[in-house]
Design a protein around this nucleic acid. Structure first.
Length: 452
RNA sequence: GACCCUAUCGUCUAGUGGUUAGGACACUACCCUUUCACGGUAGCGGCCGGGGUUCGAAUCCCCGUAGGGUCGCCA
């Protein structure tokens, strides 16, 4: 069988993390089976549908690395698309829906009522053979028992989700529908629609939902719900994908970091878990950290620069060698790139204030001669590297009869304006003698000054 | 209200009749240490409850309970 799966989002202006995982599982199944992954835009509700909203979806999928074999190439429905089962925008398929509704009416399976067209739904329980959940016998609810028929064309002439979804899956030759479990109950309707068209239905696979940490439904406003948030905070897309793989699926061994190639090789529908999973931002951050550690300098820089720029730090103006040396000292300090600015800002700007609390604690009279002594030592240090800087600090500490930490704290504050940051010795090497001495001088002149 | 799905540490999970119930994140303690981190070592912590079936249930069945989903002229 030539597998054809699809991801069919509605362009609401954002891509939900759960939607992203649905897309991922579809993509994995397509790649695993050598089938096709199709992207279809369900834009039947014209009111909230813009080209920009579609772009958000496309960009999200591209960012995750989920390439589609058929579907739109841009957010504009009029631009050429890829694949010959199109159009891939439902707003461009209205004539097909109209013909299908005609077909149902001719067969006596649809009729008009209250200005709408309704499908004559079965009164019997429907059995759903689900690849993930197993066999489900779905009976009518009390309301459905009163009136089982459902609207397929609104009074304004627009076709409704259940109809268009089925028509498209049918006409696009979709073989497996992998979607959120919130559609499981709807599947009875879809199965009956396929029967009405005299077509064999696709296989269904309903995957569990992603819930908030407290177990409630994750909706638009919830923390971590929007994929664009991860993009903005500088997550490594591979880490996000890896995390999503771990929600509702398992490689069965105890590994957490999964090479995509292996996931594709091992992924299959029956092994998908049936229970909903709660979203754990902390574990995602840990995974992201693992991926950050493995980034080569150029990739690390590529992630860092936009985040710094957004924070008002124009690091791009500096030589690449300097940027990389600076970023190297921050590497194991951050879990997400959004954490980077306070660790790296002082590398790229000379005018900075001192953390108030730390200044009051470190820029005290007794520390003044100590900093002055360090300043003299650093001014003459040769070669000016981290190892020699460390030796100097230890020597001065011994000479003054204090612990190294006593020198480190005020020196760090003077050089960076902050109480925490990268390794002091390494940051001093990267900054270079000239700027370090200048910063110590400034602290001596201004920092201690303001503290009496 | 009805219908459907689900149920192993706080979280993500391994486990498909016999295991000291394993791993990861988080948490705690200690070590390392120039801050914050990283890293290392150790530890805490779980089979929702009740009935069955069985020589033996986390594993199979039933009933509860809890959580989630659906029942729309949204998708």
């Amino acid at each position: 069988m030539n597998v054809r799966v699809r991801f069919a989002p509605s362009p609401t202006g954002y891509l939900h993390i759960g939607g992203a995982r649905t897309a991922l599982f579809n993509w994995l199944f397509a790649r695993h089976t050598g089938g096709k992954f199709i992207l279809r835009i369900e834009d039947t509700d014209l009111a909230r549908n813009t080209q920009e909203a579609v772009e958000v979806i496309l960009n999200g999928l591209r960012w995750l690395g989920l390439d589609w074999d058929e579907g739109p190439t841009t957010g504009n429905a009029d631009d050429p698309s890829r694949g010959d089962a199109g159009p891939y925008f439902q707003s461009r398929r209205m004539e097909r829906y109209r013909r299908r509704v005609e077909e149902l009416r001719d067969k006596g399976l649809a009729y008009e009522r209250d200005g709408t067209i309704r499908f004559r739904m079965t009164r019997e329980p429907v059995t759903i053979a689900d690849e993930v959940v197993g066999t489900v016998r779905r009976e009518l609810t009390d309301r459905e028992a009163l009136d089982p028929d459902f609207v397929i064309v609104r009074s304004d002439g627009q076709p409704v989700f259940h109809l268009v979804n089925v028509v498209d899956d049918l006409e696009m030759g979709i073989t497996h529908v992998i979607r959120g479990e919130d559609h499981l109950s709807n599947t009875a309707k879809h199965l009956e629609l396929f029967r009405a068209f005299g077509a064999p239905p696709p296989r269904y696979a309903h995957i569990p939902l992603i819930l908030n940490p407290d177990g409630s439904k994750m909706s638009k406003r919830d923390q971590g719900a929007s994929l664009s948030g991860y993009l903005e905070q500088g997550y490594v897309p591979a880490a996000v994908v890896n995390y999503l793989c771990l929600l509702g699926w398992s490689p069965k061994d105890d590994r957490q970091l999964l090479p995509m190639g292996e996931v594709i090789e091992r992924f299959d529908l029956p092994q998908i878990l049936r229970a909903n999973a709660r979203f754990d931002m902390t574990k995602l951050q840990w995974l992201n950290f693992e991926y950050i550690k493995r980034l080569d300098p150029a990739a690390f820089r590529a992630h860092a620069l936009p985040v710094l720029e957004r924070a008002g730090i124009h690091a791009g103006r500096y030589p690449v060698e300097y940027i990389d040396a600076a970023l190297a000292t921050c590497r194991e300090k951050i879990k997400v790139f959004a954490d980077l600015p306070p660790f790296a800002d002082f590398y790229f700007q000379d005018e900075f204030g001192y953390e108030p609390g730390a200044a009051g604690k470190e820029f005290i009279p007794v520390n003044r001669p100590r900093v002055a002594r360090l300043r003299e030592g650093l001014a003459g240090l040769e070669p000016f590297d981290a190892a020699r800087v460390q030796e100097l600090f230890k020597a001065v500490a011994g000479e003054l009869g204090v612990k190294v930490g006593v020198l480190v704290h005020p020196a760090r504050l003077a050089c960076t304006g902050r109480a925490v940051g990268p390794s002091l010795y390494h940051l001093i090497e990267v900054l270079g003698r000239e700027r370090v001495v200048a910063r110590l001088d400034r602290a001596l002149a201004q920092g201690f000054e303001s503290n009496g």
